[in-house]
Simulated assay, not measured.
Amino acid sequence: MSDPGLPPLSRQHDRRLRQMYRSAGWPCQDTVEIELLAAGLLERRLEPSGREYLRVTDLGIARLAQALDRNRAALDAHEALVLRVAEEAQRAGRIAYRGLGLLAKPGERWLQLRPDVYSIRNTSVEDYLEPVVHEIKVRRADLLSDLKKPDKRAGYLALAGECYYVLQQGIAEPEEIPPECGVMIASASRIEVARLAPKRPMKPGFATWMVLAKAAPCRQPLEPEPRL
């Protein structure tokens, strides 16, 4: 798509290209814009008044379409793994929820968090609930961004007695994950525990119970029909 002599384009370039597509085309006159112009993804235009503006070229539109396809594929892979983790939790006798909006206060301020999977044991004894958070990552860039958010991890640990990162096989090593969290590795056929999470006694707080009371747990996975 671009000359081999030009610098490689990154997600930052894709974001700027998308912003330019949605905007009136006012130039920013920075290095990202220069590289997009040099790659032929943007072009300079003049209005009758003489004002210069930028327009996304057909080549730029093709680049945006490719980025959209990549994002959709990553989202599909993420959602598929979230579903697998929820089903594994259910098979282990737990009640699992996906995408809950939960409040936590690990420090001085409240945080609005949305764990990929939150589960509790299916029990009538509060002390045995053992809430667990699973955070699913299928792309290394997403994982590295998440690891820069210690407040988020602290919030998860304020909500659950255990917190696991579930990693798509190949995107990271268990040693890269902070020690306060466990690690699971997901391959095409199975999800394996690479490192157990430290286990702490924990009971869901009132705010969490209010969210659970309004939420629907994941549907039980369908078991395969017995072979005759």
Rank of each mutant, 00 (worst) to 15 (best):
M1R: 10
D3E: 14
P4T: 03
P4W: 01
G5F: 04
L9Q: 07
R11C: 01
Q12D: 11
R15F: 14
R15N: 13
S23N: 03
W26C: 11
P27M: 11
D30A: 04
E35F: 02
L37M: 04
A38N: 08
G40N: 09
G50I: 05
G50W: 03
Y53I: 03
L54A: 12
V56D: 02
G60K: 02
L68A: 14
D69R: 13
R72M: 05
A73R: 15
A77E: 10
A86I: 05
G93C: 07
I95L: 12
Y97D: 04
G99N: 14
L100T: 09
A104E: 08
W110H: 05
V117D: 01
Y118L: 07
R121K: 15
D127S: 14
L129C: 02
P131I: 01
E135R: 00
D142K: 07
L144A: 06
L147C: 10
A154N: 08
Y156M: 01
L159W: 01
A160G: 05
G161V: 03
E175Q: 13
G182E: 01
S187A: 12
I191V: 15
I191Q: 04
E192G: 05
A194D: 10
F206E: 12
F206W: 09
M210P: 01
M210L: 15
M210C: 13
A213G: 00
A216L: 10
C218T: 08
E225Q: 15
P226Q: 08
